[in-house]
């Protein structure tokens, strides 16, 4: 299109300048690309570990061990499907992740819009800072906090129940309450983070769009619907696609630490990552943990490609690639 402009350099030097531009832009990406090659692509030979029975040979060097270890096909994957609970574990992982994606998106966008609409600069700033706090705390710490409320012997909730003459609920032996608790905990920790992303996107919106809408007599709600949300669409879709790619991976700390590793809660707290961890702590098998990781990646990859294909059909600008 720029070629149409008058007063540009002659044709041959135009090609030169295009190539120059491409080179310059490529040079910007070069440091990142180099980093990716060295720290991400080079180690990918390790994927073969998922199909090997890794052990040491003489001489004991990693390369030699990888070369000489026996190929075992898909044997390292078998433990994932040997459990009588495989269906439940996969189901838990998918259902929790879907809930997190949907609720996380809706609430974070709502909070970002609310914060943006507050007239008090100070209040908005304060809320936003406070909302970020859970992100600083680890799941281990969060689990102590929950324990202070729910501990059967001395927790605040059972104490209140005792005072009220009710039966005390043994929270850490009662799986039925945990979906709600885990969903709440996840939102509590992550909402602040995604709210910041959406908020930054909102502040990046050109003010002129709002002014134009206001001049046209749009109410505030109409402005949100017709200016804010469309401008957030790209961010929403991108975060959605990225989350879909992690649908087979669970937040380990949430599912392992928050229920305090209580066995009786497994029916609603066991997910793929906790199952693999418990198996790995026992076998210490590099091959089995690689296999589990690879399987999660492949599923994630398929999901992300599918989601991206759908998005690209309807909204090519917002797709990931």
């Amino acid at each position: 299109m720029r070629a149409m402009n008058p007063g540009l350099p002659r044709h041959d030097s135009l090609i030169g300048s295009r190539r120059r531009k491409a080179l310059l832009l490529a040079s910007m990406a070069a440091p990142g690309a180099l980093w990716l090659l060295l720290l991400r692509y080079l180690p990918m030979f390790g994927i073969v570990l998922a199909f090997k029975d890794y052990r040491a040979f003489k001489p004991n060097t990693f390369w030699n061990n990888i070369l000489k270890s026996d190929w075992v096909g898909f044997k390292n994957f078998e433990f994932l499907f040997r459990s009588p609970d495989t269906g439940r574990i996969i189901g838990n992982t998918l259902l929790y992740n879907l809930t997190f994606i949907v609720l996380g998106l809706v609430i974070a966008v709502a909070f970002a819009i609310m914060l943006n609409e507050l007239t008090s600069r100070f209040a908005a700033k304060t809320y936003q800072t406070l909302m970020f706090f859970p992100y600083f705390l680890s799941w281990v710490v969060a689990s102590y906090f929950l324990l202070a409320f729910l501990d059967t012997a001395s927790g605040m909730v059972p104490n209140l129940q005792k005072l009220a003459g009710q039966d005390v609920i043994d929270w850490y032996q009662s799986p039925q309450y945990w979906p709600a608790l885990l969903i709440g905990a996840n939102l509590w920790k992550n909402i602040g983070y995604s709210t910041v992303l959406y908020l930054a996107a909102i502040t990046g919106i050109d003010r002129a769009q709002y002014e134009a809408a206001a001049v046209d007599g749009a109410t505030k709600w109409q402005q949100i619907r017709h200016v804010t949300l469309p401008n957030l669409r790209t961010m929403i879709i991108i975060l959605f696609i990225l989350n879909v790619g992690k649908i087979f991976n669970a937040d380990f700390g949430l599912f392992y630490n928050v229920p305090l590793n209580s066995g009786s809660l497994y029916s609603t707290t066991q997910v793929i990552d906790t199952y693999v961890y418990r198996a790995y702590m026992n076998s210490g098998s590099v091959g089995m943990s690689s296999a589990a990781g690879l399987l999660q990646n492949v599923v994630g990859f398929v999901c992300i490609i599918a989601a991206n294909t759908v998005v690209r059909r309807f909204d090519p600008d917002s797709s990931l690639f």
Binding site: I47, F301, I304, L320, F321
Partner: peptide
Amino acid sequence: FNFLSFFTMIFGGGLVPTYII
């Protein structure tokens, strides 16, 4: 370049190979 970067979000070599490199 987009794919180069994106692909590594999904696939990785794992802990031990990364440590070695």
